[in-house]
Amino acid sequence: MQDIKTYMTPCSVGEAVKAMAAGGVTAFCGGTDLSPQVESGARQYTATLMNIRRIEGMGGIAEQGDSIRIGALTTVTEIRRDPLIAKVAPILAEAAEHFASDQIRNAASVGGNICNASPAGDMINPLLVLDAEVELARWQDGAVATRRVAMADFFLAPRKTVKRDDELLTAIVFKRPAADFVGYFRKSGPRPALEISTVSVGIGGRMSNGVFRDVRVAMGSVAPTPLRARNVEAALEGKPLNADTIRAAVAATSADAKPIDDVRASAWYREHLVKVFTEEVLNHVLGN
């Protein structure tokens, strides 16, 4: 087991990323992914363990102009209970509702969920539907430099993202959805608590005069990364939502979802569930 040589609790983003620039830093937020992974031997701590939870300005949910900004430290419980989220992006609150258990939700951060980059990450799916971007900070030329990356481009492979090792994820930002935006999230699992998604499907878009536009479809646990289902989106975009388009969208799922067999489910069952959920969520949209 790797020995942790230094433990630090930076108070500012600058302090944190400056330390990260030197390398060998493990950022520790809620620890709900990190601790079990280290415990099971799947990964190791590096020489410096950095508790990022006390960094100022990295928490909270706020409106900034026409955008919503969620600090990376925001817990799943905070998202679940936030009045602004409930109003502008209920799809995110819905996903938080089906996330782990109270104990885990109180510790788990949205930033950690994204950086862990599991195809089953439940915060990722609705954020893809909201077309969110992540804000990444690092130490460059003696100052904090930030860049933004679209969530849809962020994930490379299981546990691999475009985030550099010396970068901190500071926030998630998305445009305030239009008034006619509707979105729903569905994850599988009969257990009301503590269920890792076998499959998740999130669908959102603007519904006006029976026509579905700006459609965004996200799927979890059907590929090595969480993904935007572009074929399903194409089957729906700009079309009137009815039984025929729903049937076409369901058929299109097989072009997007490429699941595998694992201990949680077979590929067959995942493909089947993606179809069931796609139909269910679209019927929900239609019903509204």
Binding site: P192, A193, V263
Partner: peptide, 16 residues
């Protein structure tokens, strides 16, 4: 054994 943990070996929990 492929699922030696409570994550993937599913006991019935209180809410069920």
């Amino acid at each position: 054994l492929r699922n030696p943990s409570f994550r993937d070996y599913k006991l019935v929990t209180a809410p069920e």
